[in-house]
Computed example of a mutant assay.
Amino acid sequence: MVYDQKRLIEKSTVIDIVTKKRLTELPINFLFDYNIFPDYIMTALCQWKSEKRNMCVGDTIVQQAFLPPTRYFSHKILMGVRINNIINESKRLGFSYETLEGHIEQGVSTFMIEELEEGKIIFKIHTFSKPQHILAKLVSRIFSVPYQVFCTNQALKNAKKQLEKYN
């Protein structure tokens, strides 16, 4: 999808992870398996999982979002994204993806676990995006933006639960 990142809205949301473990000791499989969003919000088909290998730059994810957020009696929206960066540093692990043509949004999302200098662990979702679909643009203030905030907060809580479960 062609877009000008300068015209997108930047958002960064963070949740603290309560643990005495270092980043290298945390259970991070959920992150690189793209099990970030609870399954009542979204399910996904990931190229690397289908091919039984690790995530690579260029891989695609087909997302199925549920509106309202329930797997049953909901409207299903299929969208695609492509991995454009994998972060594998000593203090930061994660990846980012860009939306593909036909996605309800346009932009880039980054999902990252970070160990800050003071030994604190955080999970961060950083986005540059805006509604792409005409209907999403029309209802962005009353529906799209609040729904995106809800989904992001649920993803943060889900990541926190997975990262803290083996404390």
Rank of each mutant, 00 (worst) to 15 (best):
M55N: 06
P68G: 05
R82I: 11
V62Y: 11
L67H: 09
F66N: 06
H75I: 14
M42E: 06
I83G: 01
K76A: 13
M79Y: 04
T60G: 12
N88V: 04
L45T: 05
Q47R: 08
N88Y: 08
W48I: 05
P69N: 13
I86A: 03
I86P: 00
I41Q: 02
N85K: 12
K49L: 15
G58P: 01
T70D: 00
Q63N: 13
C56A: 14
M42F: 02
M55W: 10
F66A: 11
R53Y: 11
A44S: 12
F73R: 04
S90Q: 07
R82T: 05
N85F: 08
M42I: 01
W48K: 03
Y40D: 01
W48M: 06
K52A: 15
N85D: 09
F73N: 08
T60K: 14
H75E: 14
E89R: 05
S90I: 07
H75K: 12
C56K: 11
V81T: 05
Q47H: 07
F73C: 09
G80P: 00
K76G: 09
Q64I: 13
K76I: 12
S74E: 08
I41P: 00
K49N: 09
Q63D: 13
N85G: 02
N85V: 03
S50M: 15
D59L: 07
L67S: 11
K52T: 11
I86M: 06
N54P: 00
R71D: 12
L78T: 04
L45M: 10
I61Y: 11
E89P: 00
Q64H: 14
L78A: 14
D39S: 02
C46D: 06
S50I: 10
Y72T: 09
V81C: 09
G80A: 04
V62H: 10
Q64E: 15
Q64G: 07
C46L: 04
S50W: 13
Q63G: 05
S90V: 04
M42C: 06
R82C: 08
L45R: 06
V81F: 04
D59K: 04
N84I: 08
T60M: 14
Q63K: 07
A44F: 04
S74R: 04
